[in-house]
């Protein structure tokens, strides 16, 4: 193997700046997408458990649609196809005047895709509650809405924190797909450094380490969150 090592290149300008800005874009894409995924995912997850058949059908159709098409293709559809199908005025605004269209396409795409996965976690969290709990609420004269708001959801949310951690990690990793439509996030920047300098080893190692650090930070944060919201003795008791 013939290779000229040059680790110093990572700390030279402009490459150091590229890595930093790549990291920044990865965080920007992932966190904005997470807001959409979290809110939309909770809504759809709840709809999957309601009595009304039509609402349940819509939610199920959403989940199936977004889970069964590759994310990359969804991204291309959001970026290339959707602006063409919008009403003319809106479409023109998206194509001409919206700043950073590739960023917003990536955010919406990742958000709506991850929402389908979050919804499944929320649904299984709600469904895992014992029927007695629901019946107790109903027998107290609660309406279904009250039952959701004050009994089922508060408990379900605390149960789904651990599985949501892995979704939150996945959104950071999936944000790398945004490079295909021109968002210069972390993976894109490391590739660009490789193309400019032929120091692929150093560039990809830098990206790898930064992704590992992101993972560690997310796991750390979510462990703290989980510890604060966990219901003492609740999950442990159920697995026996």
């Amino acid at each position: 193997m013939n290779y000229n090592w040059n680790w110093g290149i990572l700390f030279q300008e402009p490459y150091f700046g590229w890595l930093l800005s790549g990291l920044l874009w990865t965080v920007l894409v992932a966190s904005a997408a997470w807001v959409i995924a979290f809110l939309l995912g909770i809504l759809i997850g709840i709809l999957r458990t309601v009595e009304n058949r039509w609402l349940r059908f819509i939610a199920t159709a959403y989940v199936e649609l977004f889970r069964n098409v590759p994310l990359l293709l969804q991204l291309f559809i959001w970026y290339f196809v959707v602006p063409e199908l919008l009403p003319q005025e809106v479409g023109r605004w998206v194509k001409r005047d919206l700043p950073n269209p590739e960023y917003w396409s990536a955010v919406i795409c990742l958000g709506t895709y991850t929402a389908a996965r979050v919804a499944e976690q929320v649904r299984s969290g709600i469904n895992s509650l014992s029927r007695d709990l629901v019946n107790a609420g109903l027998s107290l004269g609660m309406t279904p809405a009250q039952n959701y708001l004050s009994v089922r959801l508060p408990i379900a949310f605390r149960i789904v924190v651990p599985p949501l951690t892995s979704e939150f990690l996945t959104i950071f990793k999936n944000s790398s797909l945004a490079l295909t439509i021109g968002v210069l996030e972390l993976t894109a920047q490391s590739r660009q450094i490789e193309n400019y300098t032929f120091q692929g080893f150093e560039a990809f190692t830098a990206a790898t380490i930064l992704y590992l650090i992101i993972t560690m930070i997310v796991v750390l944060i979510m462990t703290v969150v989980d510890r604060r919201v966990r219901i003492p003795g609740f999950l442990e008791g159920r697995h026996r």
């Binding site: 990793k173 490391s190 080893f201 990809f204 992704y211």
Partner: peptide
């Protein structure tokens, strides 16, 4: 844990770069 922390695209880039280098 290593591979699960990385995006697949980065792994693809890694080997696209490494394999020719290793084989020569």
């Amino acid at each position: 844990n290593f591979f699960r922390s990385l995006p697949l695209i980065l792994v693809i880039f890694w080997f696209y770069f490494l394999v020719p280098l290793a084989i020569g």
